[in-house]
Amino acid sequence: MSSNTEQILLWLDCDPGHDDALAIILAAFNSHVKFLGISTASGNQTAAKTTANAISILESIGKKHDIPVVMGASKPLLRKRQNSPEIHGESGLDGTSLLPKCDKVLYAKAQERKAIDVMAQTILAQDRKVVLVATGAMTNIALLVSVYPEVVEKVEMFTFMGGASFGPGNVSATAEFNIYIDPEAAQICMQAGFQHVAMIPLDVTHTVLVTDNIIDRIRREVGEKNKTFAQMICELMVFFRDTYERVFDFHDGPPLHDPLAVFYAITHKQNKLAFKEKLMRVDVECGNGLCVGQTVCDIWGNSSTEEKNCYVTLSVDVDKFWDSMIEALVSGGASSPLDS
C-alpha cells in the first residue's frame, strides 16, 4: 500500500438501508477518503428505491453533485429477488419526514448507463489502486469482475459487510442477509483474486449497537449546531431500533452493520488497526438446502488444497468506531442544507 497520508480512492456498492446511509456519510466525511462514487443494488429494498435513497442521503449532506450514483442490479444473479421491508420499511429509509426527496434529474442520470460500465471506467481511470466496499448483496461486484476482469488488479482492497463466521445468521440459522440473497455473487467475489479481501461478519457488527447513549450523543454533538440534521439521523435510528427489537428481539439498540466495512478500509489504510482479524479460507454455500448462503470459514486451517482468501474480522474497537462515526455526522450536519 501507499503512504498513510494518501487518501483512499473508495467506491461504495450498497443498498440503502438505514445502516448503508451512515456508511455513505462516514465515507463522505472522512479526511482519509476520496469518494469516487456509489453503485446501488436490490437488497434492503428494490434497486429503484435504494438508488433514490442514496441520492436523498447525498442531498441531506450537501453532496448530491459531488458523488455520482449509478443504479445497478435489480435482482440476484440466479435467484428470485428478496427485500427487507420488515427492517427498513417500504421506502428502505422509513422513519423520518426530514429526508429530502430524491432529485429526479439525478435519479434519471443514475439509470443512463450500466453500473458496471461506470464502475469499471472509474476504477481503471485512476492513477493508483482503489478500495472497493460492498455493504449489500455482491451482485454488482460479481458482474463487474466477470465482465471486466482487469479491474481486479486495480483494487488494492475489497471489504464487505456480510456473513457470519462463528455465530448464527440473521435470515436463517446459518446465513446473513447480504450473502443469503445472492450467494452465487458472493462466491464469485471470494474467488475473484482481489489482493486483500476483508469480511466484516455479524459476529463483529452485533457488537456495535446504536444504544440510547449513542442516540443521546448524536442529539448532543451533532445537534449542537445542526438540530434538524441530527433529528433526521435520530429518527432513522429509532425506526431501525424499533424494527430490530420487534423482529430480532434486540433490546439494547440495533447493530450498525454497514459503516464498519468503510471503517475497516479507513483504519487499515492508516495502519491504525481497529480490528482483530484472521486470514482464512472462506467459501459460500450455494446449494438449496438449510445452509444456503452460509459463509464457510476454515477457522482451523484444515483446508490443505484451497488458498486462504479472506481476512475475517473477529472484533472491533467499538469506541474508536463511534468516535469516527460521530465526527462524520458532525461534518455531515455542517454541510447539510437542512439547517441552512
Rank of each mutant, 00 (worst) to 15 (best):
residue 223 G to P: 12
residue 324 S to C: 08
residue 121 Q to V: 02
residue 283 D to G: 09
residue 283 D to M: 11
residue 168 P to C: 05
residue 321 F to H: 02
residue 126 Q to C: 09
residue 168 P to H: 03
residue 75 K to W: 01
residue 139 T to I: 12
residue 18 H to L: 11
residue 51 T to F: 05
residue 175 A to V: 09
residue 203 D to M: 14
residue 243 T to G: 04
residue 284 V to M: 13
residue 232 M to H: 10
residue 221 E to L: 13
residue 232 M to P: 15
residue 19 D to R: 11
residue 137 A to Y: 01
residue 314 L to V: 03
residue 114 K to W: 11
residue 326 I to N: 14
residue 146 S to R: 02
residue 76 P to D: 08
residue 30 N to K: 01
residue 10 L to V: 13
residue 182 D to L: 02
residue 339 D to C: 14
residue 46 T to C: 01
residue 131 V to W: 09
residue 121 Q to H: 06
residue 184 E to A: 07
residue 164 A to S: 14
residue 139 T to G: 09
residue 138 M to F: 05
residue 132 L to W: 06
residue 193 G to P: 04
residue 123 I to Y: 07
residue 146 S to K: 11
residue 92 G to V: 06
residue 197 V to I: 00
residue 173 A to T: 10
residue 68 P to E: 04
residue 301 G to T: 05
residue 81 R to T: 11
residue 303 S to M: 14
residue 75 K to N: 05
residue 166 F to C: 06
residue 20 D to R: 02
residue 89 G to I: 10
residue 311 Y to T: 00
residue 269 K to D: 15
residue 317 D to E: 10
residue 76 P to G: 05
residue 265 A to M: 04
residue 56 S to E: 04
residue 128 R to K: 10
residue 174 T to F: 08
residue 209 L to M: 06
residue 195 Q to E: 15
residue 272 K to A: 08
residue 138 M to S: 00
residue 272 K to F: 04
residue 49 K to V: 12
residue 4 N to H: 08
residue 162 G to S: 10
residue 98 L to Y: 05
residue 121 Q to E: 08
residue 18 H to R: 09
residue 33 V to A: 02
residue 3 S to A: 12
residue 133 V to P: 02
residue 22 L to E: 07
residue 254 P to Y: 05
residue 62 G to F: 07
residue 17 G to T: 12
residue 230 A to Y: 05
residue 186 A to D: 15
residue 311 Y to I: 00
residue 109 K to E: 04
residue 240 F to R: 13
residue 15 D to I: 06
residue 13 D to M: 11
residue 322 W to S: 10
